[in-house]
Design a protein around this nucleic acid. Structure first.
Length: 424
DNA sequence: GATACGTGGCT
DNA sequence: TAGCCAAGTAT
């Protein structure tokens, strides 16, 4: 039996024949062939009996009849589920599929519309790549998803995990599906002492040694389910685990040498720095006609391509200087610094955001905002030069229409803050 | 290989 | 509260 389970590791013939397990990292030798067969069977039986019904999965009875999943909806789910919980992603998946029933529909959509539907899901590069990927499938693949792991891997936003998952689930290719769940299950099963993230390669190889080539998609989903529902990060339910009989961490835990949750070992994360800055919420009109000034952020970097309020840079607390805030205002006006701060957590920093607010009349709007070139006076804030580029990129958006714009959560918080404080 | 990249839920 | 975690990818 020749099969490739790892696109990064294709030089050798089979998965079973891996490099010898490094004794320093693993507490026990690899399971026997017979054990591996038993483990596969245990997991798949467990999956057939208890597998979750998720909307992008085909139903068990259809699966039994050999029906294959739809690559478009599986791909959509896999991208959305990257670093995201099922509960959070599911409503988005339904909305996307409803508005874009096929990959062609998605490719033909405006990117801004895609970003709007994605708003709130986070990691917005996923949405930009999602659209790019759909365009690629439309333009380079006749509107049909490629069917191999290697070809899928070339598409934007599809990495090692997603390519393996789609190829296995939709096309029955015997790939090695490794996500965070699998890493945890495998680290416990083999009691791998090497800490994450350095242990990735070891865990990947160990995972590949167990992966089932006959039902690769079911196996992959089964082991991910096992990690999500049974072999959970905090309180694993070893009592119901089909792999308990061979699990090294469980075995060690029964002789009180360790707890199952000691695995996977991981390096301590450095604490998140705190950054701060300010945003300016400029409103125009009132009541139902209230509009706010929003600009599209540059395509690259944080919240790339999303809409947001104009503001200062977000800098390390120590480098942030509130006395300079008004130089970044989108419009010369008597800005009110609102009480309180927005707090928002990003992956790599905590943000504290001051919110300024000002209101302009419709006459101001017509006269100044759209021309935006005055500012020759000296010293007077009301006549300074302001950021014309930011102005030209922005526009007034009706609050009643704001759901049609790609506003990330941090900006929604700022808007809420400004509107609430304004009422006081 | 390390770092950038969102958000919400749970303890 | 503060930290951890969730079906990772791109650079």
């Amino acid at each position: 039996m020749t099969r490739k389970l790892d696109p990064q590791n294709q030089t050798k013939e089979t998965v079973i024949k891996r490099a010898p397990l490094p004794v320093t990292h693993v507490s026990e030798a690899a399971p026997s062939r017979a054990d591996i067969e038993q483990l596969r069977q245990d997991l798949l039986s467990h999956y057939d009996a208890h597998g979750r019904t998720l909307p992008w999965r085909i139903r068990p009875e259809d699966r039994a009849r050999g029906v294959q999943a739809d690559p478009y909806s599986v791909w959509l789910s896999e991208i959305m589920l990257q670093q995201t919980t099922v509960a959070h992603a599911t409503p988005y998946w339904k909305r996307f599929l409803s508005e874009f029933p096929t990959v062609i529909d998605l490719a033909n959509a405006e990117r801004d519309r895609v970003l709007t539907l994605w708003a709130g899901l986070g990691y917005y590069a996923r949405a930009r790549n999602l659209h790019k990927c759909a365009e690629t499938v439309r333009d380079l693949h006749d509107g049909v998803f490629p069917t191999t792991e290697a070809a899928l891997l070339k598409l934007p936003g599809i990495g090692l995990y997603t390519a393996a998952a789609i190829a296995a689930i939709c096309f029955n290719e015997p790939t090695n599906i490794v996500d965070g769940n699998v890493e945890r299950v495998i680290a416990r099963f083999f009691a791998v002492d090497a800490p994450l993230p350095k242990a990735r390669k070891i865990l990947r190889d160990l995972a590949g040694s167990l992966a089932d080539p006959v039902r690769p998609g079911d196996y992959g989903q089964a082991i991910m389910d096992l990690g999500a529902k049974t072999c959970t990060p905090r309180k694993p339910l070893c009592v119901e685990c089909p792999w308990q009989w061979k699990c090294k961490a469980y075995s060690l835990s029964t002789i009180q040498a360790c707890a199952v949750t000691d695995y996977p070992k991981k390096l301590k994360k450095t604490s998140r720095p705190i950054r701060s800055g300010a945003v300016f919420v400029l409103t125009c009109g009132d009541g139902d006609a209230t509009s706010v000034w929003l600009a599209q952020r540059p395509d690259d970097g944080l919240l790339g391509g999303m809409m947001g309020f104009v503001g200062t840079q977000w800098r390390d607390m120590k480098a942030d200087d509130p006395s300079q805030d008004l130089q970044y205002a989108p419009y010369p006006k008597n800005w009110e610094l609102l009480d309180g701060e927005i707090r928002h957590v990003f992956t790599h920093f905590d943000l504290r955001l001051r919110v300024y607010r000002a209101q302009i009349s419709d006459s101001d709007r017509g006269h100044n905002i759209n021309s935006g070139h005055e500012g020759s006076g000296a010293g007077d804030f009301a006549s300074r030069d302001f950021d014309i580029a930011a102005l030209e990129a922005g526009k007034f958006i009706r609050l009643s229409d704001i759901e049609n714009y790609a506003l990330p959560t941090v900006m929604k918080k700022a808007l809420q803050h400004a509107l609430q404080r304004a009422e006081l």
